[in-house]
Write a protein that binds this DNA or RNA. Structure first.
Ligand SMILES: [Mn+2]
Ligand SMILES: [Mn+2]
Ligand SMILES: [Mn+2]
Ligand SMILES: [Mn+2]
Lengths: 234, 234
DNA sequence: TATTAGTTTTAGACATACCTAAAACTAAAC
DNA sequence: GTTTAGTTTTAGGTATGTCTAAAACTAATA
């Protein structure tokens, strides 16, 4: 079901998707890297902590609503329509995270769970006014880009620390893992979005990296941690 | 399921009620005038635009969770526990309405529907910070009192215009009807929370009232309208 | 090509929240 | 006290979203 808005000549989404359907679409969008890759049933089940059988049921339903392209046994992806829905949910999630940090004084490790709820609030006026109220932010507290009202955003080139060569440096632009324990660890070691990082040494044995943060603090981080800190090289 | 918080020595609600269960409790709380009256199955069905059979099902479920006192055929009311839940939902609803008007520049007739969604967001930190951010408001945009974190609020004495005698005056302190058409009508006639009202004449025939708003605008309002504008007499 | 391990789908259940229609109950009128 | 109208509950069914277990399929290995 579609309507064309006479003013903007844009296709307006007349879909009323449930909380659950929105979460499935968001998951498929992320797992497919924005629609570029096909997504497997098991990957979705893992991601949403549900079972493969439940995913299959939902894929049939989403396909019947034309928000995914699905052929059984062949994987699934978002349709053009589904991509718009996913991007709107992601836009709301990230705007609310900015709100929680900037206005509600939440720490960056406290926002994700609440944003998971707030992203499903339906009010186009509220999203518009919230965006304005926050000063049209381009990035959320974890450095993830916020899609604009047309679903567009720039992907800044970003490299995980483990792929940066010794002696090279850059700025932390985002984190791959937004979980509370990981972000609290970053707080502890003094790492934050915008911090300057230089790779001093790399240990082949366990993949750990010795880095210096803001030219002040030298620290060794594990392979797992280095994979989850994303840098813009300078 | 209850726990006692060691710090505050208060009973903390460990209930995880659904969106729907919260709405039923809020409805019962309102219909019982805060727990003072017994509520009938049909009254709840009407209020929530559902059917009596559905209400009976839900009353059994809420009774089993000890949030209502229910005896079949004898009506229902909120329990002490249920009252706390209802007051928390009402607190959230009204705080969000203040947020939407004060910070998001919504008109007072646009906030109720969105607040119906926002009132179910679960985050005690968010409520606390929102309250602080808004400057601890005592009333929502429709003049309804906002319960504090203990569920307490003062009920200001308020009288509908139709019960005020000719020649008497007062201030609009709240509106009974928060629907968009009613509030838009009030905007049109220049009535708002805080406006000064004097009753000039009353027509027995149809119950309409002639009033003057802010000593400026003389207008005749129907019986229905006068019943829904609440005044604090001066 | 045949086997097999892993993935995905189907089949059949369950819980929540809703509905209509029929039965049970209450309270007021006769 | 009986009848009756209105209310409330029960009975049985639908839709959504979940699950386990079994069947169907795919792709890699032998
Ligand atoms: Mn997040
Ligand atoms: Mn979500
Ligand atoms: Mn309201
Ligand atoms: Mn509600």
């Amino acid at each position: 079901m579609k309507i064309i808005d006479k003013k903007s000549h844009n296709v307006i989404l007349m879909l009323n998707l449930s909380y659950t359907e929105e979460n499935y679409l968001k998951s498929i969008y992320h797992l497919s890297k924005g629609g570029k890759l096909e997504v497997t049933t098991n990957a979705i089940a893992d991601n949403l902590k549900t079972k493969a059988a439940s995913v299959t049921d939902m894929m049939k339903k989403l396909a019947s609503k034309n928000v995914v392209n699905y052929q059984k046994y062949k994987g699934v992806n978002v349709s053009e329509e589904g991509k718009k829905v996913a991007l709107l949910v992601i836009r709301k999630h990230r705007l609310w995270e900015v709100f929680l940090v900037e206005k509600m004084k939440f720490n960056w490790d406290q926002v994700h769970e609440v944003a998971e709820q707030l992203e499903h609030i339906k009010s186009s006026l509220l999203i518009k006014r919230l965006d304005e109220f926050l000063g049209y932010p381009k990035y959320d507290p974890h450095g993830d880009p916020i899609p604009d009202e047309n679903g567009e955003y720039k992907a800044t080139p970003q490299i995980p620390i483990n792929e940066i060569n010794i002696g090279h440096e850059g700025i932390i632009v985002s984190v791959k893992d937004s979980s509370s324990p990981f972000l609290q660890y970053l707080d502890k070691i003094g790492a934050y979005i915008g911090a300057k990082i230089k790779v001093l040494d790399k240990v082949d044995f366990d993949g750990s990296n010795e880095i210096i943060i803001d030219n002040k603090r030298t620290i060794s981080i594990s392979k797992q941690v280095s994979e989850n800190i994303l840098i813009s090289e300078s």
